[in-house]
């Protein structure tokens, strides 16, 4: 399973990762369109992004969420009807939406943000853990 991980001790909160993500997928610098969100708390930085846990797969009201060959949880845009149920049900609060988009979006462990991180704080891990 591929999953994006974050090393808190290396992160400086520069938000280059957010920019890289929103630019790559939505051609905007607006962080509301990033699938990774850096949250500051007392000078330490926490990264919010999908853990690929897959809890949203069976609850999807349109059967539009699936796990791909790499173990990454993906949204089938053709099937998704934009109900945002997965947004409300995500325990990590990392399924995102925007009012001008018809489907929600999430981290798909694509590596774009980790390449953009100047501190090496982001890394894609590949594991063989059991997938649901």
């Amino acid at each position: 399973m591929k999953v994006l991980t974050h090393k808190q001790e290396l992160c400086t909160g520069c938000l280059e990762c957010e920019l890289a993500c929103s630019r790559a997928y939505f051609k905007t610098d607006d962080r509301n369109y990033s699938a990774i969100r850096i949250i500051e708390n007392n000078k330490t930085y926490h990264a919010n992004m999908c853990t690929q846990c897959g809890e949203c797969i069976n609850m999807c009201t349109a059967n539009a969420i699936y796990r791909d060959r790499n173990g990454v949880v993906r949204i089938d845009k053709k099937k998704c009807v934009g109900c945002l149920g997965c947004v409300g049900f995500c325990t990590e609060l990392v399924m995102f939406y925007a009012d001008d988009l018809e489907v929600p979006f999430k981290c798909i462990a694509c590596d774009i943000c980790s390449k953009a991180c100047p501190e090496g704080a982001l890394e894609i891990l590949v594991s063989r853990v059991k997938e649901n």
Binding site: N58, M59, T61, A62, N63, V81, C83, L84, G85
Partner: peptide, 14 residues
């Protein structure tokens, strides 16, 4: 148990 059971899209009450 554990599968979506709504009778229209978006019904998370299921």
């Amino acid at each position: 148990q554990g599968l979506h059971d709504g009778c229209w899209y978006g019904c998370t009450m299921s």
